[in-house]
Design a protein around this nucleic acid. Sequence first.
DNA 1: CTCCGTGCAAAAGGTTTGCACTGGT
DNA 2: ACCAGTGCAAACCTTTTGCACGGAG
Lengths: 157, 157
Amino acid sequence: MDAHDTLVAQRMRAFEELCRRQGTPVTVQRRVILEAVLASHDHPTADQIYDRICGRIPEISRTTVYRVLDTLVGLGMIGRAHHPGSAARFDAKTHRHHHLVCTSCRKMIDYETPELNDLPLPEPPFGFQVTDYSIQFMGLCPDCRAAAHGREDDSSA
Amino acid sequence: MDAHDTLVAQRMRAFEELCRRQGTPVTVQRRVILEAVLASHDHPTADQIYDRICGRIPEISRTTVYRVLDTLVGLGMIGRAHHPGSAARFDAKTHRHHHLVCTSCRKMIDYETPELNDLPLPEPPFGFQVTDYSIQFMGLCPDCRAAAHGREDDSSA
DNA sequence: CTCCGTGCAAAAGGTTTGCACTGGT
DNA sequence: ACCAGTGCAAACCTTTTGCACGGAG
């Protein structure tokens, strides 16, 4: 476990340094929430994080957990996973296909490519029986690319 | 557009036949909602579907839309897309990695395989600028597999 | 005719927002 | 000391649930 602890410690230091560089305050809440996420290996929801840190900061509010998680994602310290179930978006296609997702406007475009429909599935670990898969490509859609360029132009002008 | 219309018509007939086979009533609501999804190419939310069919069935309730969409997904007539944004699950990993998602208990397990981290990205269409990707493998986790087998045994016993 | 599906309304989450205060820099 | 971050409470939005009625098989 030393190796893992060391990694966490490194991430914490990286976080502190990042905050210092950006003038972002390093609060107790942020530290504890980040630690909680780093210690989790099961993709917790905001609410689960809240439950886990209640022992350490009993008076913390759910609101803060949401805000801090957002901040941490923004800083690139943690990732946001896309979980099915909370999805609630529907699709006429039922066959295998993939998606282009714009990280800016969240638009979702179907992406059908024969080449990606026969990936050599590696031996699934954990005894998982894989029946299908879908690839999400994250990026910038043309509209948001244009908008981003426009904004750059503005700042340089 | 004829080709597309024909496809939709085919799906509608398939739907009706499927319902007939299962003794599932073919209601106006189901038909209209299915048509709405088949006509959509933008991964609408339940609410967006609701808005789109309000013109055709003004007195329809949101509740019905949710229920019918669920039914249609269950029948395999439409798909459910996993959209980021409604996600709200967090992850200590910020590097490229993939997920095994259990379709039964919705558990989500990280899946790191070097072989899948350098997919030859095909030319992204629509001028989309891809910065990263993540693969979701859908299937049954060991626990749910065991549970399913147990149930089969029960029914056969 | 019998049931399932539907509509309404209300409940149940989960997430966001406004405002005053506390804590980090 | 200043400003951002936090806590509280309430708003908000999406989704689910209970019950009575109406339409489909």
